[in-house]
Design a binder for these strands. Structure first.
Length: 199
DNA sequence: CATAGGATCGCCT
DNA sequence: GGCGATCCTATGT
């Protein structure tokens, strides 16, 4: 067991953590089903000064209040009325940094992922896209606020956590680019806060 | 209370 | 690569 500890998430460099998350295992136990994938794509959202962030300008609402939790908390919200998007809160309580997980390579629990996706087989782009990530892993926006550093004994309680199983991609395997779908963010839309790992 | 719009996806061409 | 689906959230009256 290589569960990522609270200290991993409490650090202040959200962009660096977004890069470090590439290769980590994202694991869920939801409705009793275990599913896991390797994180292949992330985006950093750098808090109150980042125009692309939901917390820009200290915005604090029933949706965004979870972003002000301590690092190691799940922030999940609904996008376009259809997709739950899974984010990892970082930094200390009160500082609303978050990292959107945009892609995974499925590893464990393929049958339940296929069932959730409604598809007959795993294709190359099976885990590409933030909406798909949450759907495959059974993550719903009602799971926002889940603590990512504990795994309850009761398998009926939804659990989401990350593990380091030794995949540490080097610079030659990582592509850095601007974030997707944040045109409204002005100059901040150009920041190189998106990280993708070549397989 | 009413309304505009969104950190997307999948199907169509 | 263009577009419709679909509904919560935020904001304003």
């Amino acid at each position: 067991m290589h569960l990522l500890p609270r200290s991993f998430y409490l650090r202040s460099d959200v962009v660096g953590i977004a890069r470090e998350l590439l290769g980590k295992y994202l694991i869920t136990r939801i409705d009793g089903d275990i599913a896991a994938g390797v994180i292949t794509e992330t985006e950093a959202y750098a808090g109150v000064s980042d125009r692309a962030s939901h917390a820009f300008g200290n915005r604090y609402t029933s949706r965004t209040q979870v972003m002000y939790s301590p690092g190691g908390t799940a922030y999940v919200y609904l996008c376009y009325g259809i997709h739950s998007l899974f984010n990892i809160v970082t930094n200390q309580e009160g500082i609303p940094h978050a990292i959107l997980v945009r892609g995974i390579r499925p590893v464990e629990g393929i049958p339940v992922m296929l069932k959730r996706s409604g598809k007959p087989k795993v294709t190359k782009d099976f885990g590409d896209g933030p909406g798909k990530v949450a759907r495959l892993l059974g993550i719903h926006y009602s799971h926002s606020g889940t603590d990512l550093t504990v795994i309850p004994d009761d398998p009926g309680i939804p659990a989401i956590w990350l593990e380091d199983r030794g995949i540490h991609p080097g610079h030659d395997r990582i592509e850095i680019s601007p974030r997707i779908g944040v045109d409204y963010a002005g100059d901040d839309a150009l920041l190189p806060y998106r990280f993708r790992m070549r397989l």
